[in-house]
């Protein structure tokens, strides 16, 4: 587990050094969420109806746009190749990097989401479900996203391609996450969605690192 912890600590330290970069996903999240009331109307009934979808889609896009940072800087200074060639199991290294990425983006987005939800006339008593779904969903988004970013790390303009590759894979998470929040507002029981979100999380936690390692080995050859 030392490989995991060292990589994790290293990436967290690196992220904290470029504190300005930490703000970007959060700023993106706030801006996109506030676009919707401007695009729609300010009356709370329509906002509330859309709030779950708006929050979830914005968090999903914010995570996706920040995925590049997992491998990009290491790829450019060549340390990624060293990591791949090191005799530590690659999937542990990948897991460390993805967890660090989640802590610097997904987690922060989740912590910020209640504040933004209130701005969309979100009933305060349902905020817990919103946070729970994002807590379960955002790590899965980072894990699946890491596969896509590993596949496109070698390409110059991988941004749009990355979106095309992983957005279809994000759809189940979005469906269960947004509907859980939506139904919790209507007072319905959402245990089913939470279990499914947890299942998707565990599935991607176990499989995604191997896919990412295989992708890294292929693209860095």
């Amino acid at each position: 587990m030392t490989a995991f912890t060292t990589i994790f600590r290293r990436d967290i330290k690196l992220a904290l050094r470029h504190r300005s970069e930490l703000i970007n996903p959060l700023a993106f999240f706030v801006i996109v969420v506030s676009l919707f009331p401007l695009g729609l109307s300010a009356d709370s009934r329509t906002l509330l109806q859309l709030a779950p979808a708006v929050l979830w889609i914005s968090a999903l896009l914010a995570t996706m746009l920040s995925l590049e940072s997992i491998f990009r800087s290491d790829y450019e200074d060549g340390s990624l190749e060293q990591l791949v060639l090191s005799d530590h199991p690659l999937f542990l290294i990948v897991l460390g990097k993805v967890t660090a990425h989640w802590c610097t983006t997904g987690l922060l987005l989740t912590l910020m989401s209640p504040a933004l939800a209130i701005s969309l006339a979100f009933p305060p008593q349902n905020l817990d479900i919103l946070v729970w779904t994002l807590l379960l969903g955002t790590p899965t988004l980072s894990l699946i996203g890491s596969i896509g970013v590993a596949l496109t790390v070698g390409l110059r303009r991988g941004g749009i391609l990355l979106a095309l590759l992983i957005l279809p894979l994000y759809i189940p998470i979005l469906i269960f996450g947004a509907s859980a929040v939506d139904m919790s507002i209507d007072g319905l029981d959402v245990a089913g969605q939470l279990y499914l979100l947890a299942a998707l999380f565990v599935l991607s936690l176990t499989l995604a690192p191997f896919a990412t390692s295989a992708a890294l080995r292929v693209t860095l050859e």
């Binding site: 596969i147 596949l151 279809p168 894979l169 759809i171 189940p172 469906i175």
Partner: peptide, 17 residues
């Protein structure tokens, strides 16, 4: 690799839809 990752997701996407 993307095709293999995709094929794992096809049933998941189908049932979630």
């Amino acid at each position: 690799i993307l095709a293999i990752v995709g094929v794992i997701n096809v049933p998941i996407i189908h049932y979630s839809v």
